[in-house]
Amino acid sequence: MILDACGTATGMGFVAVARVTDNRWITCASRDRVNFGLTPGDELDVASTICSEVRACRSSITISDVDDSEIYRDHPTPRQYGFKSYISVPIIKSDDSIWGTLCAIDPNPREIGSHAEQLFTIFARLIARELDRQDELTKGREELAEGRATLQTERDTARLREEFIAIVGHDLRNPIAAVTSGLRMIEKPDISPDRRAMLVFEMQRALTRASQIITNLMDFARGRLGAGIDVNAPAPIDLVPVFRDVIGEIEQIAGQPVLSSIDLPRALVADPQRLAQLLSNLLGNAVAHGAPNQPISVDIAERNGELVASVTNQGTPIPPEMHPSLFHPFSRNESNQKGLQGLGLGLYIASQIALAHGGRLDVSSSAEAGTTFTLHMPAKPA
């Protein structure tokens, strides 16, 4: 309607709204009665247009007849585009930026009076106000979306904080209570040696669990503060005794047998403490979630230039839809019937240790083969 009104008021055959920047002239809308050939999306070389001058001077330019204009009689633009009459009014937004122009041309001279120029100016302001309104709507939608996202983040943070406190309280209270109770019972004079040995074993298992929780919490906090998982691997090291020690510790506290196979013929560059932590976390996860009457299998070997370490337990398989989130912090297998099994940091920390060594952790789970977590990392001998 604006383009039709401008064309009718001036008699000009081509009227357009153009987006004009320092380096582009783009047709946004057009009314073409003279086959000038520009449709929305078409572009002109901005340097070849008079609209670039309108943008520079921030005011209207009108030419009723190029041949009668001392300024534009020899100007290259009218000759290049074949017009005799011209009008262009800047579209200036509320932030005082020039968005583009409302312009018109015709191959014939057209009398452009003050009324027509005023009409173009009014319409240019109307277009500018509409652009401002669209900006406000877009900004409003973005602010609304940002507000909703912030609210959801706050809700998630509050929920996570409550879960975190509940799980930490649960996980640390239990081993502390076990040790306290064990010490109280050991002090009794009539306790048998077998009973004393069993209590010591239970306290050792409780302290191992508490130590693992605290280590994972410290690593998680360090990662959240930007430090990440630190790796200290200055030289090749024989990892076989490192892994055997971890397996031996877990065997002492596990209710199920642990079957292990280690085939590492040479020393490798790696952080022994971190890899021990990784294996301990994987074994701890297998003990917590595996079937108590079925063995846990550990297979560690160097294959095709990689250190490959897998831990397999039997029991209820992990649903495929849960696999992507297993290595996220605070991820826990809610389908497990043992209740709260921990902070859900063990697999996350293990995956970060693998990543720090240039490797990765994979998971596979089925009723037939059991659940297997596998480390793949480069086997660097030097």
Rank of each mutant, 00 (worst) to 15 (best):
Asp135Pro: 00
Arg148Glu: 09
Gly140Ala: 10
His115Arg: 14
Lys139Ser: 15
Ala124Glu: 00
Ser94Pro: 04
Arg148Thr: 00
Glu136Gly: 03
Arg125Val: 05
Ser88Gln: 07
Ala145Phe: 06
Leu137Gly: 03
Asp135Thr: 07
Tyr86Glu: 04
Glu117Gly: 12
Glu143Gln: 15
Gly113Asp: 15
Pro90Gly: 07
Cys103Lys: 07
Pro107Ser: 12
Ala149Gln: 06
Tyr86Leu: 03
Leu137Gln: 10
Arg141Ala: 08
Ile105Leu: 14
Asp95Trp: 01
Arg129Ile: 03
Ala128Val: 01
Gln118Cys: 12
Ala116Pro: 09
Ile127Phe: 03
Ile87Gly: 13
Leu137Lys: 11
Ala145Glu: 13
Ser85Thr: 03
Ile87Tyr: 06
Arg148Asp: 04
Ile98Arg: 13
Ile105Asn: 12
Cys103Asp: 15
Gln152Ile: 02
Ser85Pro: 00
Glu136Tyr: 08
Leu102Gly: 11
Pro90Leu: 06
Gly113Ala: 12
Asp132Ile: 00
Arg133Ser: 15
Leu131Asn: 12
Arg133Leu: 14
Tyr86Ser: 07
Cys103Tyr: 02
Leu119Trp: 00
Asp106Trp: 07
Leu151Lys: 12
Leu102Asp: 10
Asp132Glu: 05
Ser85His: 05
Glu111Trp: 05
Gly100Cys: 02
Arg148Leu: 06
Leu137Ile: 14
Leu151Met: 13
Ala104Leu: 01
Ala149Trp: 00
Asp135Trp: 01
Ala128Ser: 10
Arg125Phe: 02
Asp106Ser: 14
Ser114Gln: 09
Asp132Tyr: 01
Ala128Met: 06
Pro109Lys: 15
Glu146Phe: 04
Asp95Arg: 08
Asp135Cys: 09
Gln134Ile: 00
Glu142Tyr: 11
Gln134Phe: 02
Trp99Phe: 15
Thr138Glu: 08
Leu151Arg: 14
Ser88Arg: 09
Ile122Phe: 03
Asp106Asn: 14
Ile127Cys: 04
Ile112His: 09
Ala116Val: 05
Gly113Met: 10
Asp96Leu: 08
Phe120His: 06
Thr150Tyr: 08
Ala116Phe: 04
Ile91Cys: 13
Gln118Ser: 15
Ile91Pro: 14
Ser94Thr: 02
Thr138Pro: 00
Ile112Tyr: 07
Gly147Cys: 02
Glu146Thr: 03
Ile92Asn: 14
Ile122Pro: 02
Ile87Phe: 07
Pro90Trp: 06
Thr153His: 03
Thr121His: 04
Ile127Tyr: 03
Arg125Gly: 12
Tyr86Asp: 06
Gly147Gln: 07
Ile105Ser: 12
Leu119Arg: 06
Asp96Ser: 14
Val89Cys: 10
Arg133Asn: 14
Ser88Glu: 06
Glu142Val: 10
Trp99Ser: 13
Arg129Asp: 13
Lys93Gly: 10
Arg129Val: 05
Ser94Phe: 04
Ala128Arg: 06
Leu102Phe: 08
Glu136Phe: 09
Asp96Pro: 02
Ser97Met: 01
Lys93Gln: 15
Asp95Glu: 08
Asp132Gly: 06
Ser114Tyr: 01
Thr153Gln: 09
Arg141Trp: 02
Glu111Lys: 11
Arg125Thr: 06
Asp132Arg: 05
